[in-house]
Amino acid sequence: MKYLLLILLAAIPIAWGSGAGDTGFQQLWHLFSGGELSFAEKTILLDLRLPRILGAVLVGGMLSASGCAAQNLFRNDLASPHVLGCVNAAALGAVSALLCGASAWGMSCCAMGMTLLTLLILLIPGWCSRWDGGSIILAGIAVNACCAALSSGALYLADERLHSVVFWLLGGFWRMGWKEISLLAPAAVCGWAILYRMAPDMDMLLLGDRGALMSGVDLRKVKTTALLVIALLTAVAVSCCGVIGFVGLAVPHIVRLTGGGSFRRVLPLTVCSGALLLLAADLAGRLLSPDREIPVGIITSIAGGPFFFYLLLRRRAPYA
């Protein structure tokens, strides 16, 4: 854990000093040593790159934490906020708000509202099936399909705003400012803290509903709280940076493949790994194509697709 944290802390100044333009490590050194900096350099370092880096770290940690929680909650390797429909629901809310000309807060509220609505829809089969994970995941897939179709409909109606909506849907951190960070940071800290506190409950869920119930877990309370936290983390992250795929699915798996263990140990590792992955993906998107940056969502999906396939092939092993 401490090595991962050190790598993350080392990666932050690298990402801070890298990017298009002449502002680099020298200017970053001047910023800390009190050297002379132009207004433009200060703006690039403090108002453009720093919130962007913090955004990547927070969103990476939020999406991977919600994926980690979803996999424990449903005892399913393939569960993630994406599969549950939370990502596309949040995207639909945010796109609708964007088309109506809403502010960052307005988009976040709409994304959160849509995710909560999705959650309510998911709770219906949950209650009816005594919280059977399979039923909730199937309902999530159905909701996911509906939200994706409605998002496409919104694109159809987007007219001249189509380009900005599509670019937003691809996911990225170019819009990230201090306003977005002020929204992301409290949501991330609250979500991580609640999940960390719920760690013993999340471990018990791995025993299955009967095992957990007979061990004293209040299934309804634990599952509802976990779903709400997953929705909060996903909705706020998606509303600030668009749809970034595979982080929620892949990162918890990478962590479990390399170390694994109880939720209390896996969660901080997952958060740090997710933060590092998105920071690296954002940096790659900026450096690979300096003239026109590649959206992070494209990079994570390109890297995540083959990993997902590998996961499906590997999944047979424990049950053989």
């Binding site: 119930l213 004293g216 263990g261």
Partner: peptide, 26 residues
């Protein structure tokens, strides 16, 4: 209350979990 019940009755199920990402001790 499930918590109170769990302090009085423990159950060993017939069905064993297929996969748990934990050690035997955990």
């Amino acid at each position: 209350d499930p918590l109170e019940r769990a302090q009085h009755i423990a159950l060993v199920e017939q069905q064993i979990p297929g996969s748990l990402p934990l050690t035997v001790e955990e």
